[in-house]
Design a protein around this nucleic acid. Structure first.
Lengths: 253, 253
DNA sequence: GCAAAAGTGTTCGAGATACACCCATGA
DNA sequence: TCATGGGTGTATCTCGAACACTTTTGC
């Protein structure tokens, strides 16, 4: 509140946990650091917040520079600020997470990264700083949000099969789902529709392709109930539209 | 990631949205600023993050200094960092929200506040900076979290009636609930128990008093389902214990 | 014809919802 | 005795969970 009193200025960074589904695994993007501290260690992509830059913009910029993708789902996760989390300086990290469709993968090491690669979530080498903690938090958030929002669609390319979509849920939640129940459930939501095209993929029956009706919105599915209301007050479904290429506003959770 | 390159140091503050239930209304605590900028305007309590201080600690400190309470529920909300949100300097606010039982209210203007008071949520005068936006975000989070966690108990004093508790849900969600269904639902959870004592409160039948079995934990109630699993994999209920007087870790949502 | 994934319905049970009256007290 | 909030039970409905076989294709 009183920035002029004690000049406790800190460095603020935006670091991004970038998820994708690849080969039936949940993977995330790491960069090998070219600079000290922690030179040579794998870390989350991220960068300092510039003076005239919004936090979301920093996250998007870091995302774009490291992966070449833009217009993907990006949401603020949590802010990590333990004094000891970074050696020497006081660095506070505003962590974001992003979901990238498996089609958009185009890697390019750039900036202060000497290498970029995808890692399966359960086989991470030891990460720089407190980035392991950030990854854990992001995974939990992703898994939770899968259950009460339409975030899963953000992993999907423009056209996909129901098996593709089911796989997202299975990989993130780490459990097998029943095909019939999954299809009933996902179709009952009315958020996807058949494109009319089919994908033939091997020596078996071809699969119908679907598209998301409203690909750039992430909606909250289950509004809470907890106990029954006895009047007609309807408090609207939470919905947030997000222009492509822009970060989401502060989320409901 | 490279704090030494461009010295983009910012001031970081922790600001707290402090909720309580008072007189059947959801209220929050504001302070009138004694200093520029925005001198004389009402704002959220908060302070600069000190060099050796965790973000949670800053929030707790601000909370304690302004209200004299400690050991209440405190959770990080979101980080606000628009470049224009604060005049002159670049100030990034890590926002928290806190829930205070209605019994613990002890106000005292201190620090850089010339006055402290409670305001009903729907009659806020225009707040300093982007604090109105922060309050909106906090209210949404609170309302959402009521539905899928046991956060409501954090509003309750040590002993309370079921009507008291129901009122919390009604006030926050802004709708009337059916008494029978509410009691069935809340008792079926098995998280509260009768103390054996009664409260006599007026010219009507006395009410049984209850206590929370596990008052310092906030648990996630509804684990998501989305589609039925067909194997026995049980992924544990999310539960976080939080020592009294300490801030919560990064939440699931 | 055979391997491999796509596609499809029904039954069951738990929990959410709707709904109305008696009880204990103080004035 | 009356006004006030405390306290209780039942019927119905919705939705999630369990469960197995046929279809279409490529080889």
């Amino acid at each position: 509140m009183k920035p002029q009193d004690t000049a406790t200025a800190a460095v603020v960074t935006a670091d991004v946990v970038i998820f994708t589904i690849q080969g039936g695994e949940l993977k995330l993007l790491l960069v090998r650091r070219a600079d000290d501290p922690c030179r040579g260690q794998w870390a989350l992509p991220g960068d300092q917040v510039r003076m005239d830059e919004d936090l979301d913009q920093t996250a998007m910029r870091a995302l774009q520079v490291q992966t070449g993708v833009h217009g993907v789902y990006l949401e603020q996760l949590y802010t990590f600020g333990r004094p000891s989390r970074y050696p020497i300086a006081r660095v506070i990290a505003v962590a974001y997470y992003a979901l990238v469709p498996s089609e958009k993968l185009q890697l390019q090491a750039a900036g202060n990264a000497e290498a970029v690669d995808w890692f399966a979530l359960n086989q991470l080498s030891n990460l720089a700083f407190d980035h392991a903690e950030i990854v854990t938090t992001a995974s939990r958030r992703l898994s939770a949000k899968l259950d009460y929002s339409t975030i899963a669609f953000q992993f999907m390319p423009a056209e996909f099969t129901l098996s593709d979509l089911q796989q997202v849920y299975e990989v993130v939640r780490q459990e097998q789902l029943d095909k019939r129940n999954f299809r009933k459930w996902i179709l009952a939501q009315g958020r996807i529709e058949k494109t009319g095209r089919m994908r033939r993929n091997g020596s078996h029956r071809p699969a119908s392709l679907f598209r998301v009706k409203n690909p750039h919105s992430v909606e909250i599915i289950r509004q809470g109930r907890s106990a029954s209301a006895n009047n007609g007050v309807e408090h609207g479904q939470e919905t947030r539209m997000r222009p492509v290429g822009q970060a989401a506003a502060a989320p409901v959770r």
